[in-house]
Amino acid sequence: MVPAGVALAGDMLSIHELTKRRGSREILSGLSFEARPGRVTAFLGPNGAGKTSTLRILLGLDSATSGTALIDGVPFARLKDPLTKVGALLDGSGAHRSRTARAHLRWIAAAGGIPPARVAEVLAVVGLTDDARRRVRSYSLGMSRRLGLAAALLGDPEILVLDEPVNGLDPEGIRWIRTFLRERAETGRTVLLSSHFLGEVAETVDDAVVIHQGQIVAQGTLSEVVGEHGTIEDAYFALTGAPRGGLR
C-alpha cells in the first residue's frame, strides 16, 4: 500500500476497505485512504456523507462491519498510550456540563498518565486559562470547541484527528487553528481534519479525500483533487453532485 520512498518517520493513519452497516443501511462502503506524517489531510464531504462515522471507527468508538482503520499499523483500541499517539476532537466538548474545564482536563491527564502540569499548558495554548474554573455548562460553543482541542493536545500527540475543527470558532480562532495545524504538520506530525466548510481548506491542507454517500469520490494531493475544476469549491460540488449554492 505504501509507495516506496515514503519514509515512515512519523505515524500514519491508514483506512482500508472500511465498511459500516447500521441495520440495512450501508453508511460506509469500502473506504480506503491514508493520512501521512508531515501533511495536513482534509476529509471532505457534505453532512451525512460518513465523515464522523469513519473517524469514530478510527478511534475505536464504533466497530467496523468489515475492513480496518489502523494507527501506525495498530487498531486504536490496542494502543497503550493513546493520548500521546492520537489527539482527537469530535463534536461538542466531550465534557460533562457540570464539571469545570480544569477538572475535565485533569481526569483525562490522569487516565493518560500525563503530568497534571500539562493541564495549565494546554489551557494556555487554547486561550482558556481565565475560564478554567468555570463549569462547562456556561461555555459558548467556541469555548467548548477550544476545550475539546485542549483535551486533544494534552498528550502532545503524533497524530491529530479533528472532526469539523473550525465549527463554532470565530474568524480569529479559525486563523489561529490554521496556523497551528500547519505548524504541527511542518514538524513531521500527521493531521487529519474533516470538514464540510470549504473556505478553510484550500490554504491549510496538502492532501484531500472527498467522500459522498459513504464512498470516496476523489483523493490525492490538493492539486490532483482540484484537477481541471479550477477551485476546490468547484471540484467539491462537481464530485459530490450537490447543487451549487445549496451549501455554504
Binding site: 464522523t52 468508538l61 463534536d91 461538542g92 466538548s93 456540563r97 460553543l141 467548548s144
Partner: peptide, 8 residues
C-alpha cells in the same frame, strides 16, 4: 441532554 451525538 443524553446520548453521544446530541449536539449539546
Amino acid at each position: 441532554v443524553e446520548g453521544a451525538e446530541s449536539g449539546g
